[in-house]
Design a protein around this nucleic acid. Structure first.
Lengths: 226, 226
DNA sequence: ACAAATCCTTAATTAATCCTTAATTGTGGT
DNA sequence: ACCACAATTAAGGATTAATTAAGGATTTGT
């Protein structure tokens, strides 16, 4: 799975840093230091995999696992310090997908992470739909519908529309918009953004009909979507 | 997964009997004593999970795993006598889903079997017959029909079409597609996937007629089947 | 075990689409 | 009417996809 997001839950900083250093090359890493923040991060970040240390202050790892399993089938890889077979068995039954005992071999960890993510590849994508008025956008299927008609958009235009739909009515400066979509500094005099907005506007308006103008520019300030 | 079928590949009779005794209560067991009979049984019995001892006479366990992975993504749980981390890592990368070192704890084995089967349970139920529009595909006899005409496809193309029919309209990235069908990391610049898609598209369109385009690529994103 | 057929991969070529640049035209504010 | 910014247009260069053909690997049949 390309660029998967991994939540690392570990209270010891050294292990946490080791994990995130090693995995950061291939994955997007989110860290949590205890059970409470783990659940918070889990809900907001929506990771594709969780690496969970069992020994946590306050809320235990088992409890975190249980809570996660109430709402999600995300793969969970458990780290445990003790070699306690019975605990391991009960963990696997409670919903853990795999475990490693510390100290773990880092190559094995990476391999096991890959195994878990590999299995997720064909599952139904999580539906993420954005809708505004009669424009809707599905990021996973990469599809846009205007008045029920399908509209296929190139990557950049799609990304711009996605940003607009996620924050309707908000005014974006050119700089703001460019840096979010392109991920590069603006260095003004980049007319390319204008071209993309123009193309996007044309396509949306063609399907929306009757001068419905969604993408409106504010003179000297930026652009907004209404 | 209720009443799943498990293929146990193990040359030592005592271990083989132990496994099948323990698992027989909950699963349907098929046994094999060496690599050759393992592959034969695998193809005829179509198991839901394989427990594979590495140390086999003649054809090794690694080789069996490789062969299985050419045509199937069935979960494979490897048994290994030696505590060799490097081998374990390479096994996981070659497609093994999990491993246990002998002597193994029987409860842990059962738990790990459950984990593997549980993950299959959330996926699309495996259908032997997939149909979309006037294309149908029968996995058991490895046949494809387009407009009632039979179409014989090589393994890779068949696997790709099977994936498409199982998830119509879903967009697959090249990486996603490749890793699912090949079971290997993508490492970009793999043109072979494009060639297979091209061939598949030609064959399907030839029989479908009148410019019916089923396999549609989305520029910069991936491919979908509609 | 050998030969024949089939399949998979690689590499090179061609095609399609997108992104950017630059020049031109349009628009609002003073 | 003038200026500064915005929008449009069209052309090129850059990316990505599709096709083709050839060689090597694998499978099949005898």
């Amino acid at each position: 799975m390309a660029n998967a997001k991994i939540l690392v839950v570990e209270d010891h900083q050294d292990v946490r840093d080791l994990l995130s250093d090693v995995l950061a090359a291939d994955y997007q890493i989110v860290k949590a230091v205890d059970g409470v923040s783990a659940l918070a991060k889990f809900n907001t970040e929506n990771p594709d995999l969780v690496i969970l240390d069992l020994m946590l202050p306050q809320v235990t790892g088992e409890s975190v696992l249980k809570t996660i399993r109430k709402t999600s089938n995300v793969p969970v890889l458990v780290l445990t310090a003790i070699q306690d077979k019975q605990k391991v068995v009960s963990l696997l039954k409670e919903g853990a997908n795999d475990y490693l005992t510390k100290p773990f071999d880092i190559d094995e960890l990476i391999a096991r992470v890959q195994v878990q993510l590999r299995q997720r590849a064909t599952e139904q994508p999580k539906q993420t739909n954005l809708t505004y008025d009669n424009i809707s956008l599905d990021t996973t299927i990469h599809r846009v519908y205007v008045n029920g008609q399908e509209l296929s958009l190139p990557k950049k235009e799609f990304a711009i529309l996605q940003l607009f739909l996620g924050h309707p009515k908000q005014v974006f400066t050119k700089e703001n918009l460019y840096e979010t979509v392109w991920g590069e500094p603006y260095m003004n005099a980049e007319n390319t953004l204008n071209v993309h907005i123009s193309n996007l506007r044309n396509k949306v308006n063609d399907l929306a009909g009757t001068g419905n103008k969604y993408i409106i520019s504010i003179w000297g300030i930026g652009v907004r979507f209404v």
